[in-house]
Design a protein around this nucleic acid. Sequence first.
DNA 1: ATTATAATTTGTCATTTTGCTAATTGACAA
DNA 2: TTGTCAATTAGCAAAATGACAAATTATAAT
Lengths: 135, 135
Amino acid sequence: MKAYLHITKALADGSRMRIVAALLRNNELCVCQLVELLRLATPTVSRHMAVLQGAGLVESRKDGRWVHYRISAAFPGQLLQWFEEEVFTAQEIKTDEAVLKDILATPVEELCRNQSKRKTFNHRVRRSCDTNHRP
Amino acid sequence: MKAYLHITKALADGSRMRIVAALLRNNELCVCQLVELLRLATPTVSRHMAVLQGAGLVESRKDGRWVHYRISAAFPGQLLQWFEEEVFTAQEIKTDEAVLKDILATPVEELCRNQSKRKTFNHRVRRSCDTNHRP
DNA sequence: ATTATAATTTGTCATTTTGCTAATTGACAA
DNA sequence: TTGTCAATTAGCAAAATGACAAATTATAAT
């Protein structure tokens, strides 16, 4: 019953929905690949993964500096069936699948390098443009 | 897909979980019976029902001043199966079932009368004891 | 018509959630 | 051992959520 709330809350979010959909079609994905797909900050994606893992919906495998996530064997089968019917018809997910194809075609090292660049670029832009700094 | 988020968000709440469980075992329940079960304010329960109805999980039938809710035929079957397995083993739900037996044994009019009394009583208590009034 | 009442809508407040940046951790590499 | 880099944790602001009381609506009864 505790599990019920963990699971439903984990599923009740658009980003996590896209993550689950991506993992259902791709066996294993590492955090930086999901960052590339969702275009969210790495810590945000990491926290989404923690929520999904806390609900027992995904499992992780550490491989050097990378962490690979996959759908857990404990993911309730009936939920999985419903998810397939309900989610994969959506246009947004089809777009994600196409984007993922490109992501998978790029070496993981390159993805991470690009993400680091984007991050420092954002910093530069922010610092030079934003006059309303917070303490 | 829009439906996916409506449905998962509707399910991802403890009170609404108990409401769905109660409706699964009792065909039809009116708002005041659910108020009695959950011991929440009537507007709160009404809102929960609106969320469930917005997700297409329940339907309503108006009967005079009363509104009766029931599980919708559109409630996804796989979700229903999962819900049965996941929720009905919980102690909290078994307690609810026992409480509901008593509630169903009392005429609806009496339930509503008692709830009105409780409400005015709460007002009296609040006004006389609480020195920290808000504007 | 007027009153009473079951339910809904509205407005407020406290809590939770989701996003970010900054700081930290853990593992590889030089 | 020192530096680098992927991922996580910590801390904060904005948005969403769930609770309540008060006001409104809609229906039955007087």
